[in-house]
Amino acid sequence: MKILVPVKQVASIDGDFTLDGAGELDPRALHWQANEWDAFSLEAALQLAESSSAGEGFEVVVVTVADEHGEEGLRACLAMGADRALRVWDPALAGVDDPLAIAAVLAAVARREDPGLILCGVQSSDSANAATGVALAGLLELPRVAVVTAIEQDGGGLTVQRELDGGAVEVLRLSLPALLTIQTGINEPRRANLRAIKLARSKPSATLALSDLDLDVSDVREVAGARTVRLLERGRGEGASMIEGPAEAIAGRIVELVTRELRA
């Protein structure tokens, strides 16, 4: 069985930054790293592949939609144990980060690869849409469960647990092919060792253009759900009214405030 694991490099902002007048961010303020959730979804895929009897021929394929900056993340996935990497890129995709648009690209990849299981991270830590995976499931009309915290193989299908708001857990069974979005903490992602990092370079990896997927950039842009008008800085708030004095005085004032506010 083939397991497809979509991954991305996420942007974070280090230190100081400024927005220009048009509400755009200088890309130099961005720092790229692997999305935290992806290590968990890849680990889940690797564990499924390893737990099956050796003869079954599992293949774990990682895919990203990114320019060449995505290569580093893919190599890290190969070093962790993925068998093959795919990167989809077309210059016309520059600036496209809408979850529905990315899902449309991934859907074309999935139709080509025909995986038995797709494991996505619940969300990415930069834009946190928590939407790409389930949008992909919708486009492929796959059974899916979002925010999965445990997976077990169950005959030809899977038994999974999903996290509900408030800490309850729902246990579900679903048949394959299927898509799951994986929550952090579901497992302990392995770390690559030196041999694996070197070996990663010799694993197969390919770059696909939109035309290889029979997609046109207008198809992708049309399904995008939203357009960013501008970026805004977060308000700094009014600032706190400061309580001065020794710990004793601070504690006294806190007791007073808590009592008043809870009674109100």
Binding site: E72, R75, A76, A79, R191, A192, N193, L194, I197, K198, A200, R201
Partner: peptide, 14 residues
Amino acid sequence: PQDSRAIRDAVRAL
């Protein structure tokens, strides 16, 4: 050099 980032991450984790 190639793979520096992966090596840094892995060594740091260790």
